[in-house]
Amino acid sequence: MLETIWFLLWGVLWAVYFMLDGFDLGLGTLMPVVAKTDTERRLVYHVMGPFWDGNEVWLITAGGVTFAAFPTTYATMFSGLYSALMLILFALIVRGVSFAFRDEVNSPRWKCVWDTCLVVGSFLPALLLGVAFANIFRGLPIDQEGIYQGTLFTLLNPYGLAGGILFVLLFLVHGALWLAVKSSGDLHDRAAKLLPKLWAALLVMAVIFLLTTRRATFLYDNYLANPVLFLILAVTVAALVMIRVYIAKGSWWRAWFASCVTIVGTVLFGVVGLYPKLLPSSIDPAFSLTAFNSSSSPLTLKIMLAVALTFVPIVIAYQAWVHHVFRHKSGEEDLEHEEGY
């Protein structure tokens, strides 16, 4: 029971991370397309500024919770995906400092360096996290000892890449919507104009992904056994459609919320399909790491559950308050205040 609760909580934490960091990873990737002048680029940084770091802590928490609740999974996952994780790390490093460093020196070349860091540092994690999760859905070559028997290139199979592209598109839509919500003028118009195209690409990729999932993974087994679970998929698809409806109406906030639901739904679709496996083995299903054979002791799970149920709502409350404080659209006048980095 405890293991099952933690399995779900684990999935929810990753889903929340993707929902939150998704918009700034997507917008960071999109910046060169939507921002043409230095002022516009500064505005793109500015609409992410108060949020991106708080969002990234969800990744640290998701990683930390994997370590705390399922240490054996954490050990296998992180050492097995060594090269992919190192790439993500370096990307997040250069991206993180670009926020603080970019406007410290007033030279176009200097700014160009950090803008590049932002773009690459946003795109790579989006892609690689998608690749990693699709491969987890598909199963990793894990042997009897729980040791990963593959390389970085094992991950770059068609299904893994499809997952990567799906994540990138999810985040691009999410980020473009965020920009549409938070900006006005040319920036807003470019985001609005781009969105129908991005959405169409996302739809195509989502269909491909759902179809190939049937061939490449066992995820649908849980759904076929409990058809009521198909609700998750139905809600996710409905939210995906609603994004388009709200884009057409110009209801940007609502479209962004629909996008949140789509991202959370996509992750939960995979996680529920995985249950109870955290890391399925493609060598032999018996070697898979599950919520039951890789979890911490009941005492640790209980204590961590108390901590999570107490403090995660508090975190959500104050992060929601921050969204309320910075609910305004960013304009050029914000840049003059010397506010920000």
Binding site: P50, D53, V57, G64, V65, M304, Y318, V322
Partner: peptide, 26 residues
């Protein structure tokens, strides 16, 4: 692992979130 996870949940969230509030909230 649980101590690290508690650190992120109790402390690091608070620090990161409110530093941004401080920076952008003058």
């Amino acid at each position: 692992g649980s101590i690290l996870a508690i650190e992120a949940t109790l402390a690091f969230f608070l620090e990161s979130t409110f530093l941004a509030v401080w920076i952008f909230g003058w």
